[in-house]
Design a protein around this nucleic acid. Structure first.
Lengths: 111, 111
DNA sequence: TTCCTTTATCGTATATTTGCGATATAAAAT
DNA sequence: ATTTTATATCGCAAATATACGATAAAGGAA
């Protein structure tokens, strides 16, 4: 786009959008599902399950990590990943607080 | 990207990702906030509040609508929009069901 | 050390998103 | 009928995202 306009919005709006963006790809949803089921696992296990190249999975993992959705730690030549439930909780709360309470007030009418 | 891989994932994963994608921009979060506060309002009211051109806001509204997050109806020369709370509820539930219940089970350990 | 395994990063091609101005469309007002 | 108002859509330019193969890096095994 010509000029970045994202900075014009509040930090909360940007944070929420960034979180949603990390979820905005089925591959990353699938990665999170695997991590949720296995509690923790190494990159290779995820590569085995997903229909994507190793480099692509690694890239998705990187994005999830930089968004704070997952944690990762080096385990010898391997990398172990797991979901950062705290971050998830925070997102869920912010998401809910932004819309859910307004919902009750406004559920009555719609155009 | 070279080839579309999104189709390789489950419908639920794709739906959830599509929903998240609609939320994945601060401008759209801001639009939803305005709609939640005012319950319903016309395009122009949103344009007045956001730091974006009319055409850009209209495009964001279109994306939100096609994602099912908002409803819109023509009112004379105006267009009235409001949040589709039902869709929100569905997303929130799917999101929660996918991760929240696994959370309790797995909160114990992480790498 | 040399090889093997595992993962991250680079380079590249293509697709999608974002934003704006300009223009079309459509109803209301004059 | 013409003008005004409100919104949607088109066309473009630039930024991002997506995917892959190739390669680098780093630890473990031989």
């Amino acid at each position: 786009m010509a000029i970045h306009k994202k900075e014009s919005f509040t930090q909360k709006e940007q944070d929420l959008a960034a979180f949603a963006k990390a979820l905005a790809h089925p591959a990353r949803i699938a990665v999170l599902k695997v991590l949720a089921e296995k509690n923790e696992c190494i990159c290779g296990e995820i590569v085995d399950v997903l229909p994507l190249a190793q480099s692509t999975v690694s890239q998705h993992l990187k994005e999830l990590k930089s968004a704070g959705l997952i944690d990762g730690s080096v385990d010898g030549p391997r990398s172990c990943y797991c979901i950062n439930w705290k971050a998830f909780e925070k997102f869920n709360q912010e998401f809910t607080s932004l819309f859910q309470k307004l919902k009750i007030r406004n559920e009555k009418a719609c155009c």
